[in-house]
Amino acid sequence: MLDRITSVTLSSVTLPLGAGISDAKVLTGRQRPMTEVAFLFAEITTEAGHEGVGFSYSKRAGGPAQFAHAREVAPDLIGEDPSDIGRLWTKLVWAGASVGRSGAATQALAAFDVALWDLKAKRAGLPLAKLLGAHRDSVRCYNTSGGFLHESVEQVRDNATRTLESGVGGIKIKVGQPDHAEDLRRVRAVREHIGDAVPLMVDANQQWDRPTAMRVGRALEEFGLVWIEEPLDAYDAEGHAALAGALDTAIASGEMLTSVAEHAELIRHGAVDVLQPDAPRIGGITQFLKLAALAEHRHLQLAPHFAMEIHVHLAAAYPLEPWVEHFDWLYPLFPERLEIRDGRMHLSDRPGLGVTLSEQAREWTVARETVGTSR
C-alpha cells in the first residue's frame, strides 16, 4: 500500500556525561575533556500512521550544525513515499550538495535515513536485522566506556571486572599517551587482571606517528590483543597498511571517516584487518550497507563504532562474525535495554530498531522543530 510522509520532527538533545572523558587526544593537548554528546533525532510519521525514529550525534562541536542542516532539507521529505529510502537519501544529499557528501551534512541525513529504515521494519513487523537478513541473533560485544584515560589503571581494572560480570565479552582500553611506557604498563596491568582468555583491544585515537606506532605495536604483540585501533591519523591509509603488513596483531580503523568513499580508500590500500564504520557518521544505514558489501568482498572483519542500538542490527546482518561496541552512555535516552549475556549482545524481538525516546531525552531537548502536519 502506498504511503506518504506527512511530518518530520527534529530534536537536538544534549546528553550530559558524568565526568570529563579523556582519551589520548586530551593528553596530547588536541582536545578538551568531553562533557556532553549532542544528538540529532528525527521522528518521521506517515499518512497511514506509521512512525520511525532515527538519530545521529556529534561529540564536542558539530551538533548545532547537524540540526541546522537537517532543518533546511527536511521539507524535501514531505509527501514522499517512505519506502523509497535510497532515492530519498540521494534527494537529500543533492539538496545540500554545495556543502559536500561527507561530514556534518551527511551526518545530518543519517538521522532521516535511520528513521526511514526503522519505519520500514516496523511496517513489516520485524526487527531491523531481520528485515535486512540476519546471519545471527546475537553479536560478540566488547566495552569501551570503562577504559578511558581520565581514570586510574586501578579504576579501569575495577570497571573491567564489573563489565565482564555484566555479560559483556571483551574489554577495550585507551592508549596513545605521550609516555609510551605508561601505555604498556596499563595494558599489562589490565591483561594480567582479566587473564589471557578475555578478548582485549587497545585504541590510540590517532595519536602515534608511523615510527612510534610500529615500535609500540611490536611491544604490544605479547599481550595477544584482538586489535590495535587507530594507531595513526585516520586518513593515513598507507601507514596503516604498513602496520597491517608488519604486525601479527590486527589493525582496526574507520570510525572517524564520514563517507563510504573514505572507507574505500582504507580497503583499497589493505590498510585494516577490522573495519569500524559508524552509520550515523557516514550518512546512515543506506550508506553502511554499501560499505558492508565492500568489506565482505575483501573478507574484512567488522566492528561498528558506538551507537550499539543501531549497530547491533547491522552487525547481525554481516556475513562474517563481527563485534559490536558496548557503551552505556546512551542508556538515559531510551527506556529499552539490549540483552547482554555470555559475551554477546542479543537482538530483541521488538520491531524496527526496538527503541523509543525516553522522557529524559525529551527533557534534555535544546531545540525542536516540526515540518509538515501531524495526523
Rank of each mutant, 00 (worst) to 15 (best):
L302R: 03
G103H: 05
L347I: 02
I310D: 02
S374W: 14
I85P: 09
V13M: 09
F306G: 01
F148C: 03
S374Y: 12
H69T: 14
Q155G: 08
I44K: 01
R368T: 15
S358W: 08
V198L: 01
D183S: 07
G352I: 06
P332Y: 10
Y331T: 15
A264D: 15
L15A: 04
T249M: 03
P304W: 05
A295F: 09
R30S: 13
S348L: 11
H180Y: 09
E363R: 15
L300K: 05
L149W: 13
H305A: 06
W323Q: 03
V73I: 14
E369W: 14
Q107R: 13
K122H: 09
G176K: 02
L320K: 12
A279Y: 07
S58D: 12
E369N: 11
E265T: 11
T258C: 14
A279H: 09
H269K: 14
G63W: 02
K130D: 14
V216R: 04
I173M: 11
V371Q: 05
R87K: 12
W89V: 09
V272G: 12
V99H: 11
V312M: 02
H180M: 08
G133N: 04
I173F: 01
P335V: 01
A70T: 10
A264E: 15
V13Q: 07
V175N: 06
